[in-house]
Design a protein around this nucleic acid. Structure first.
Length: 468
RNA sequence: GCUCCCUUCGUCUAGAGGCCUAGGACGGAGCCCUCUCAAGGCUUAAACACCGGUUCGAAUCCGGUAGGGAGCGCCA
């Protein structure tokens, strides 16, 4: 039997980090077993579902490269099918019409709560023969009243529910539309889903779904309920935690492989290994190895992984990403060094592409102002002799390469009895306007001779003008 | 309130009765390297929620307690 998993988000918002992890595990499990990964959009709540949210989910998955092998299926396009199945249940006496009003239901709940009982529908319409005039009934599933339903969960283990804890849930609303728990069941059955991997907030729904499946004559799939993902503070994930949408991570300068690698280690591990390529994830991942307990997001570790992928990624790939971010900053990338060379110079000092792009602006844009403290400390009269001598040397330099620039720098500093830092740091401020850049020789090489000399003159003039 | 789930360093985790004086990673601290920022190298602090039981022996098994979480909708 081929494994078939599904990711079934409801399009009421963006693809957040928790959803992304669920999608990843579903995808990994399918890939690992040579199975099929199905995408299903659960949009039965027409009030809250939007096409923008559908697109956002698709975009998020595309960015993470979690391609669905089938779908997306839309539940709103399958309403006829749900109604058909509900009618079948009705005809078989496994479901019934319920005419209870909302007020009646509310009153019932209140009483039960007052008696310190779990609120549940008492099944009073189970044996009603006559319809109530003027009331459009809902359809309820006739849940078994005794016995137990056992969920053999791949991550939580054996979980036992007494059927009398479960009540007769509504499967079709009074307006004729099917409800969530029912659609899920019909879909999982129709789509031949063999493994339902989802958040553990659904664990309590599982016995109800299994009972409906059994009533339908279907074999329940294998279930795996993933622990929740919490915010950095250990509280439930929310907007207040910043990057809730996976696409926000792109904006913030993260690579999808870093996000994926971070996510796969939340609730899953393989010994002491921290870094996993996509291929390794696929071969090593197993749902049986997933943890039971919730985990908090650790932004520092994500940052570290991102840095790892920046340091070790392929240049063309990284250059494309840098270009995307530079363009976001409004930088004209054609007016500067080749981006692959730039990435090579910057990849050791950036944790994110956002950071790298911001730290690379000076390669493309003129220096309009020096950082105050940096200039005050480095662009001083004291630095002038060194800068002048270096300017002469650079102007005559035949081969404009980091290596030759480096030699010139050493020689210049030596001849003036200066420590390298006394020369390099003023140069850095002159070239970048600030104090941070790649090694100065590499920076000059990337800047090019003309720009270097121009900026050196600009700095000298600045000092000459009294640092104003 | 009821049902269900969870509990190893700050965080992610290893651990499936003796290999544990509990390992790794991020983060922290210190040192080294150094033209800045980084990167890198080395060192270091830091945890089995609690109480009982089983056992020659428990982080690992059992029971309870506490603390977190989820569900209990004509939401998904």
């Amino acid at each position: 039997m081929t494994v078939r998993t599904r990711f079934a988000p409801s399009p009421t918002g963006y693809l957040h980090i928790g959803g992304a992890r669920t999608a990843l595990f579903c995808w990994l499990y399918a890939r690992h077993h040579g199975g099929v990964f199905v995408l299903r959009i659960e949009d039965t709540d027409r009030e809250r579902s939007t096409p923008e949210a559908v697109q956002a989910i698709l975009d998020g998955m595309a960015w993470l490269d979690l391609k669905a092998d089938e779908g997306p299926y839309y539940q709103t396009q399958r309403f006829d099918r749900y109604r058909e199945v509900a009618q079948g249940l009705l005809a078989a006496g496994q479901a019934y019409h319920c005419f209870c009003s909302k007020d009646e239901l509310d009153a019932m709940r209140k009483e039960q709560l007052a008696r310190k009982e779990k609120p549940r529908y008492d099944g009073r319409c189970r044996n009603r023969r006559e319809p109530v005039a003027g009331v459009n009934p809902v359809i309820r599933f006739k849940n078994p009243v005794d016995g137990q339903t056992v969920v053999e969960d791949a991550v939580k283990g054996r979980v036992i529910f007494d059927n009398h804890e479960l009540d007769d849930l509504i499967i079709v609303r009074s307006d004729g539309n099917p409800t969530y728990n029912f659609c899920v069941v019909v879909d999982d059955m129709d789509m031949g889903i063999t493994h339902v991997i989802r958040g553990d907030d659904h664990l309590n729904n599982t016995p109800r779904q299994m009972n409906i499946l059994k009533a339908l004559g279907a074999t329940p799939p294998r279930y795996a309920h993933l622990p929740m993902i919490l915010g950095p503070d250990g509280a439930k994930l929310s907007k207040r935690h910043g990057a809730v949408s996976v696409m926000q991570y792109r904006e913030d300068g993260y690579l999808p492989e870093a996000v994926l690698n971070y996510l796969v280690r939340l609730g899953w591990s393989h010994g002491d290994q921290e870094v996993f390529s996509r291929e390794e994830m696929v071969t090593l991942f197993d749902i049986e190895d997933v943890n039971k307990s919730a985990s908090a997001i650790n932004p520092q570790k994500l940052l570290w992984l991102n840095q790892h992928y920046i340091k070790n990624g392929g240049l063309p790939r990284l250059a494309a990403e840098l270009q995307w971010h530079l363009e976001r900053l409004g930088v004209e990338t054609s007016k500067g060094p080749a981006l692959t060379a730039l990435v090579k110079a910057q990849q050791e000092r950036a944790k994110t592409f956002k950071e790298m792009a911001e730290g690379s602006r000076f390669f493309f844009e003129e220096i309009r102002a020096y950082e105050h403290e940096a200039a005050a400390k480095n662009l001083t009269e004291e630095a002038v002799p060194g800068l002048r001598k270096l300017r002469d040397g650079l102007a005559e330099l035949q081969e404009w390469s980091a290596a030759s620039i480096h030699s010139l720098l050493i020689a210049t500093a030596e001849s003036l009895g200066l420590k390298l830092g006394k020369l390099a740091q003023p140069m850095r401020v002159a070239m970048t306007g600030g104090t941070v850049s790649p090694p100065i020789d590499a920076t000059l090489e990337l800047l090019g001779k003309e720009r270097t000399l121009r900026r050196l003159d600009q700095a000298l003039a600045h000092i000459d003008a009294g640092g104003a």
